[in-house]
């Protein structure tokens, strides 16, 4: 991870760490002089990806001719978002319109929003470009407006992650969990691993989180090691995170039953966690 050797001359405009480089996302942002960062070549490639997609060039992935209208909407959103995002980059250099970046981000995300069965990776790049545009805006112009744009863009990004790849897309029956990808280009989880993990922390009964309650019940069936009441939440969350992060964990799409569109992660020890179609953790299970 890259970092600056001296603090940001603009102070804490980027957050509590004045040494941070490229918003701690050097793949997507560059910041050669420390005064402002812009979308890296990778993010620009994402914008161009959106443009190419709109122009009709073939994109690897499932055949979406059956979902033609959704694909058109998706790429239309991407091209508009990419175009405005690029415009905002240029505009920054001449101290131009601060809103353009945020607008580009929102429209870029709107494209991803419409994507039901299009490869998530393409959408992710364009959405990232949108976020880059919002960050650029935050640097160069009104910090408040920029921050709002960023928050909205990131919120839309999470929503688009949840939405993208679903709706009956050609999801493999089982894939191996890499433990790093926030959104699978092959379907499966509708939210990044962090969001999946976070859903286990929701307090559902008294002070018990969903992960803690599930741990408690399956401990009661003798399926999990005994812990004290105080440790239930941490034990449940640790188990959930271990399942999600283990590179040998298998990720299985749930197509029928009571949680269609959901995902089941089964760790190498056979203990699994099932998430509903919204990416919310529902229960543990043992799958020999």
């Amino acid at each position: 991870m890259e970092r600056f050797l001296s603090p940001d001359p603009l102070g804490f405009i980027d957050g509590p760490n004045p040494f941070i480089f490229g918003g701690a996302q050097p793949m997507y942002f560059v910041d050669p002089d420390g005064l402002w960062m812009r979308a890296s070549e990778l993010a620009i490639v994402g914008m161009l990806g959106g443009a190419l997609g709109f122009s009709g060039l073939p994109i690897p992935g499932p055949d979406f001719r059956d979902d033609h209208e959704a694909a058109i909407e998706f790429f239309r959103g991407q091209i508009v978002g990419a175009g405005i995002g690029l415009t905002s980059d240029a505009a920054l250099l001449s101290a131009g319109a601060p809103i353009a970046g945020g607008l580009g981000a929102a429209l870029g995300c709107l494209g991803s929003f419409c994507a039901g069965s299009v490869p998530a990776a393409v959408g992710a790049y364009s959405t990232t470009a949108g976020i880059a545009a919002a960050r650029v805006t935050m640097h160069g112009m009104s910090a408040l407006q920029g921050a709002q744009g960023l928050r909205e863009a990131e919120r839309q990004y999470m929503l688009s992650e949840k939405k993208g790849g679903g709706d009956g897309a050609a999801t493999p029956a089982s894939t191996t969990n890499t433990g790093v990808s926030p959104a699978s280009a092959t379907g499966g989880p509708k939210a990044g691993l962090d969001a999946l993990s976070a859903s286990g922390r929701e307090v559902v009964k008294n002070d018990l989180t969903r992960a803690g309650l599930e741990y408690q019940k399956h401990m009661g069936r003798g399926e999990l090691p005994k812990v004290s009441g105080r440790e239930l939440n941490s034990a449940g969350q640790s188990l959930l995170d271990a399942i999600l992060r283990d590179p040998q964990t298998k990720q299985i799409g749930v197509f029928s039953g009571n949680f269609p569109g959901g995902t089941r992660f089964i760790g190498p020890n056979g203990i699994g966690a099932t998430f509903d179609a919204k990416g919310v953790f529902r229960y543990f299970g043992v799958y020999p």
Binding site: K205, L208, L213, Q216, M219, G220, L232
Partner: peptide, 21 residues
């Protein structure tokens, strides 16, 4: 109920009862 809990202990106890185990 699950170990260490009693009923209702956060479960619904009105017209519909929730039971852990």
């Amino acid at each position: 109920n699950a170990p260490g809990s009693s009923w209702p202990d956060g479960n619904s106890a009105e017209a519909i009862h929730e039971v852990d185990m």
